[in-house]
Design a protein around this nucleic acid. Sequence first.
DNA 1: TATGAATGAGCTTTCATTCAT
DNA 2: TATGAATGAAAGCTCATTCAT
Lengths: 201, 201, 201, 201
Amino acid sequence: MPSNASPRTKPADVRRREILAAAEAVVREKGVGGFSVSDVTQRAAIAKGSFYLHFESKDAVVAALRERFVEDILSEVATRVDTCAPDDWDGQLDAWVRHGLALCLSPRNLALNEILFHGGGAPGLREDLTSHGRGVAHLRDLIARGATAGAWSASDPKLVAVFLYSALHGVLDHAAVSGEDDPERLASALIRLCRRVLKRD
Amino acid sequence: MPSNASPRTKPADVRRREILAAAEAVVREKGVGGFSVSDVTQRAAIAKGSFYLHFESKDAVVAALRERFVEDILSEVATRVDTCAPDDWDGQLDAWVRHGLALCLSPRNLALNEILFHGGGAPGLREDLTSHGRGVAHLRDLIARGATAGAWSASDPKLVAVFLYSALHGVLDHAAVSGEDDPERLASALIRLCRRVLKRD
Amino acid sequence: MPSNASPRTKPADVRRREILAAAEAVVREKGVGGFSVSDVTQRAAIAKGSFYLHFESKDAVVAALRERFVEDILSEVATRVDTCAPDDWDGQLDAWVRHGLALCLSPRNLALNEILFHGGGAPGLREDLTSHGRGVAHLRDLIARGATAGAWSASDPKLVAVFLYSALHGVLDHAAVSGEDDPERLASALIRLCRRVLKRD
Amino acid sequence: MPSNASPRTKPADVRRREILAAAEAVVREKGVGGFSVSDVTQRAAIAKGSFYLHFESKDAVVAALRERFVEDILSEVATRVDTCAPDDWDGQLDAWVRHGLALCLSPRNLALNEILFHGGGAPGLREDLTSHGRGVAHLRDLIARGATAGAWSASDPKLVAVFLYSALHGVLDHAAVSGEDDPERLASALIRLCRRVLKRD
DNA sequence: TATGAATGAGCTTTCATTCAT
DNA sequence: TATGAATGAAAGCTCATTCAT
């Protein structure tokens, strides 16, 4: 008998991904602090207990969500940055900002910012920082290389990276809430501001 | 029986303030997401029901806390800024950053950053933005005036304000977590970065 | 308006007693290991949350039940024993056994033996022992006094007390299960056995 | 691919014994009320479903454990008793008590007493009694024979057996909890008490 | 203005059992 | 004989909110 209907049992990683997808959907609707495991299992069309076959706890699925979110965006950004010439520093910065912004403002990701920046969950601080940390570290490396190459002025690359990363995300949040209409214009303006911060004296 | 001790009934605004103080203490201990109305009423030495005489809900007291926090810091910052000469734009910016930073990093306020920046509470997003908004607006006005006076370059003062405000807070958060040891040095570095952003071309 | 219906709010100790009574009933039906807090609250006609206003946990109500059970029986037994002449040692032992047995075999208490002797709850061992301990200690004192007075032979009163107390309870359990028909006959037989154990050589 | 390692399928009785052994280990660690089927299957290195191929339910494996425990002890005790001369009644009683006690206090069995005497599991009462019953019956037979032979006084051998069996187990429990240091001394004292109960008038 | 007992929906998590393979 | 993903009822407990006094 060929598999009619959907098989009730699926490979672990498939189920895991489905749960993650369901969790993402639910978080988008109710926020990190406001969703329940029941919401997720209902959406994923599985039994409550099955959730715990794939995630250790409610917190664990949030952590996984965060990780995946950052990972996805960063790897895409990195790809874009790498298409620039290695010594085209402003081009790389431009790519970082423009594509990072575009990705975060995409319909799929827009609402998920809450996950990353408004942690909520009591014990989530460290992880939040970790996720943040990935993005900051990536930007810091770019800045440090550019500064070493003499293209930019940045006596403390880590500080500048935190500064810019936070600035970008703040603007992003603001744009998300106030319904930014022209991402292109916004990106250009931000790139200009970033360049100012890094401009050699 | 003569009424010994303090009278059980107090003016509404006194009680309100007491509850707010209790809430602040509790939030500092347990975080926005981790405190309960019971915690607050116990600390304020009132009955559970009395809480709802002064605040509509748990969320309402958090909102009030946020508002008061921003208000306190901003009014202090405004006072400091106003001691500068009206046309000493860099001095005013310097005062804004330096004293804002100092206030936020003070032992009393450090932990309360969580309230402002890690909303947690499910429906808190709007209020969070509102509180944010006050700080951003204040900074925006300063930038707009300086730009109009020709001291700074800022074609979109609102955007620049969001940008800088977010950057500062991001650095602040990072400093809070990583245990910044030298607030003075940090402030100086930040002021330098802010000036770069605003420097006339 | 005169209190029609029953007042929803009652003095704490009244409610506590009602919950205890409900718990007793439920335990009698389902056993210590098989009852749930929901069972109790349903029976007591209160909300689930109200239970936790009066007892810290499920275990706590079981402990209270145990304590009350032993207390009730022991105080009654002590009263009966005290009606004997202080030097009528066999009379006191007779009273201890006869009335203890009668009380435990009474319809009200019969099923509750399970609470005392088949602890079940994981962390209950110590408390179980404690409750046990009360009965054993009471018997031990009687034996020690009788031995000191030269009426009985008991070189290790504690050991003899544990021995007899366990024996009596074992017989009791057996009687409860096999549906003993003649408590009087049983008591007489047991008293004879106890006297043998204590008889001066 | 040649079948390396042990074959996955084993004779039913071998598997059953392995599961029983695993269950014993787990119960010793977590208690009757605190272990789960998962614990057992993990320990036995089988799948969860396989458990139900060999035991009807969780309760069934506990019952089997009880039965085996009593069986083991009793058969050992019976062996020891049978080494005495058939008319050496006090010797047989001595052997019964001494070896029963020694076996129960042995490191291997000490913790398993919980299974027999602190049922825990909701519907365990009947089975508990059954296991008890085996020991009591064994003792009853010995007593009845001794009484018939005129060596002891026991007008109701069943009652006396329950009495002594319970007494011994009560002392045993007490010893287990209070950390008895000298089993020999304890056994001697208990034998003395048992003899008193049975002594011809 | 103040009380605090009472509520009850809701939470996360566990686990004995089943069944398609 | 063996598997283990899936189930789903049920558990203990929390807590924002209400209301009769």
